[in-house]
Design a binder for these strands. Sequence first.
DNA 1: TTTATAAATAGTAATAATTCCTATTATTAT
DNA 2: ATAATAATAGGAATTATTACTATTTATAAA
Lengths: 121, 121
Amino acid sequence: MRYSHQREAIKKTIQETNCHPTADWIYKETIKIIPNISLGTVYRNLKCLEESGDIKTIYDGNIARYDWNTEPHNHLKCKHCGDLIDIVLSDESIHPQIKQDFKFDVDLVEMTIIGTCQKHT
Amino acid sequence: MRYSHQREAIKKTIQETNCHPTADWIYKETIKIIPNISLGTVYRNLKCLEESGDIKTIYDGNIARYDWNTEPHNHLKCKHCGDLIDIVLSDESIHPQIKQDFKFDVDLVEMTIIGTCQKHT
DNA sequence: TTTATAAATAGTAATAATTCCTATTATTAT
DNA sequence: ATAATAATAGGAATTATTACTATTTATAAA
């Protein structure tokens, strides 16, 4: 994969936010740096960055969000404000049970815990 | 909510399959029973049925699927064939920990376990 | 340091999933 | 049976995403 100014800007945009941005948000931020960048370039590079392991894609309902945190982790999702909060719950104890009960080899566990965050209590 | 012939057919279609169908699949099945049903009606009623608790919506990547199984459960997703398999893993032991560590009240845990099903081993 | 190459881009068109709109139809309370 | 109004069909609109293509740009070789 060849260097591109655009890809670096997209990567930097994601890595400098602590939210879990959508493609459109990333586009609107990156266009401030590269005024003629196109949305297609954003999508193409998000796919590249995912494949190279620089970012992770998370599906929030039916919209894709992107996460610079590539360490295994899960999310708390507040049903009131929609905020996603990173958490680490590295309990791999269920893997052997699933292998035994369902003859299913586990790669990863995608977990979203839905509830109410502290802003709404 | 008033009775409708269409809603009953949609509900029946979902409850009679053991796959996790998309709105489009449900539309294509239901149109066999009600030849002039419209896709908008399918979407509207899927929302109604979700609200009344008759079905559950599950997000598979960025496409919505619908599930007649409204009991708390999770899914195994095969990365090869995309099949979704229902599993019950009712371990609520993490709830108090999350409450304590993040001041977050847990309603439900949406978990998708990704890996390889027995058809591909 | 030019030049050739092919990968990446901008801009736009196309697609897919879903929602919205409105005149008509059908359910249900009276 | 009739009136009121919720639900529908059919199609247009919207949103997220992908595909297409002429042009630009990174990079390797001369």
